[in-house]
Design a binder for these strands. Structure first.
Length: 443
RNA sequence: GGCGCGUUCGUCUAGUGGCCAAGGACAUCGCCCUCUCAAGGCGAAGAUCACGGGUUCGAAUCCCGUACGCGCUACCA
């Protein structure tokens, strides 16, 4: 079930709800009930449920667990300052808790107000958290929090009580930052006599600096990861094992398996650092798992439309073990279809040959002559280039001189396999690049 | 300041009193494979289980304390 919690009218953001849909759908997480698909417990948008919250407030008044509060923002502010100064426990002081009913009835008509919940002040409230076990809170330190704001909208607390009870929510699984307000929620449910849902407070994800996730440390919406070239299955796999484990050795998991295996009792209570290196590994892993047809489509999506289907068929498999993120695809193959001579530092050509320029020239010249006459296919190209190792030609190992050829063709000392690349480039363009490299070296 | 939560290799974690002189994965390093780079295979290094007390024949595992980190402390969620 998907519920949109939009009770803070000051923080509405255009398009935010659509991004929630998009992000969840991208990850393959879908819902049976929600604003867009309907369901028996609607509306699923809190701003459309205002009457229900009002009804709940009435019930709370009826059991004497709510009261009007007319305190001004300024009074509240000075109260907080005073408490901080005197090292007192923070929280509302109950100023309006016992106002005369007659006066209240009058002020409600003429003044802005909020409604507060009467917390029990004696004893303790115990939360039985599914991740952390029992957590005990002293009621004396709890304050009467706002449940209905002066604009008539509920706070999160009231909305939670109202919606989770009427929508028959069994589990409240949320971030650890909610733990301190859990006693509020327990008392709210108990006040109206509804069963308290099961609570599970998950550890937060933190950046490499141990602080809240920031842009620098990986904090971003799921959709931003999509744009950066991450696969949803990798993202889900990555997220799944942050704070949870299946057993002592599993680190790869699919969505279906996760759905079948996940259990709250294997969630750990401590925060996890968001490790981008692991995400990259997982993404590479899942890329290698993609069936050829789908992989080819993904590669094509990264390339200009003009690229031929034939070229794509050859190149896609070569890319699959060499790609960790989709955005790495284009730079790796652009030398194939951009009509240009790769630019590079001439020194790169002879680097692997101990900067022996005359030997490097030799390599380039021999390659040109070896490739000039043959029928243009992989087998012949490989045979011809391997032949250069012989004493009567270069007399050095191919692994020594092949890097020179990579640089001449791709502009860098590594990339997708050379022989296949030469086939795709064609004889004319290949020889042109070798000759250009030789020219570069001579000047 | 008050309250709460947390603390096992750099990172994610396994571990619920003996099978742990702590297992797996990422990252790192080495070897193999190899047309480069990857991928893959094999291997190495890496944690006095935050610290200090206790309980016990025996503790990473139970209890107490300390330190450090984080969260909350709104008419935000």
């Amino acid at each position: 079930m998907l519920r949109i919690e939009d009770t803070d009218q000051t923080r509405l953001v255009e398009g935010a709800v659509d991004r929630i849909y998009d992000a969840l759908r991208w990850l393959g997480i879908d819902w049976d009930e929600g604003p867009d698909v309907g369901g028996d417990y609607g509306s699923y948008v809190q701003s459309e449920r205002l009457e229900r919250y009002e009804q709940m407030v009435t019930s709370l008044f009826n059991c004497d667990r709510a009261y009007y509060c007319f305190c001004s923002a300024e009074r509240l502010k000075t109260l907080r300052e005073l408490q901080a100064q005197r090292h007192l426990p923070p929280g509302y002081d109950g100023h309006c808790r016992n106002l005369e009913p007659a006066k209240v009835a009058h002020r409600v008509k003429t003044e802005p107000f909020v409604v507060r919940f009467k917390m029990l002040k004696g004893g303790v409230t115990t939360l039985h958290d599914l991740v952390r076990g029992p957590v005990v809170f002293e009621n004396r330190l709890q304050d009467d929090f706002v449940i209905l704001k002066s604009d008539g909208f509920p706070t999160y607390h009231l909305a939670l009580l109202t919606d989770d009870s009427s929508m028959e929510i069994s589990h409240v699984i949320r971030g650890e930052e909610w733990l301190p307000s859990a006693p509020k929620h327990v008392q709210l449910f108990e006040a109206v006599g509804y069963p308290v849902p099961q609570f599970a407070h998950l550890p937060v994800l933190v950046g490499s600096d141990q602080k809240k996730l920031s842009k620098r440390t990986g904090g971003a919406s799921a959709l931003e990861y999509k744009d950066k070239g991450y696969l949803p299955e990798a993202m889900l796999n990555f997220l799944a094992f942050l704070g949870w484990s299946l057993d002592d050795k599993t680190s790869i998991i699919s969505k279906d398996e996760l759905a079948a295996q996940f259990s709250l009792d294997r969630v750990v209570p401590n925060p996890a650092i968001f490790d981008l290196e692991r995400l990259d590994f997982l993404n590479g892993y899942h890329i290698r798992e993609i069936p050829p047809v789908r992989w080819k489509a993904l590669v094509a999506a990264e390339c200009p439309d003009s690229v031929s289907d034939e070229l794509m068929s050859t190149v896609a498999p070569l890319l699959q073990t060499r790609t960790n993120r989709l955005e790495e695809i284009l730079p790796n193959i652009s030398f194939l279809f951009e009509d240009y001579l790769p630019t590079y530092d001439a020194a790169l050509l002879s680097e692997r040959l101990g900067n022996d320029v005359s030997m490097t020239l030799h390599v380039l010249q021999d390659v040109v002559s070896a490739l000039s006459q043959i029928d243009w296919n992989v087998v012949n190209i490989e045979f011809a280039i391997r032949g250069l190792q012989d004493e009567e030609h270069l007399g050095i190992k191919m692994r020594k001189f092949i890097v020179t050829l990579y640089v001449a063709i791709m502009g860098k000392p590594q990339g997708i396999p050379l022989f296949d690349s030469l086939v795709l480039l064609g004889r004319e363009e290949s020889l042109r690049r070798f000759k250009y490299a030789a020219d570069l070296l001579e000047n």
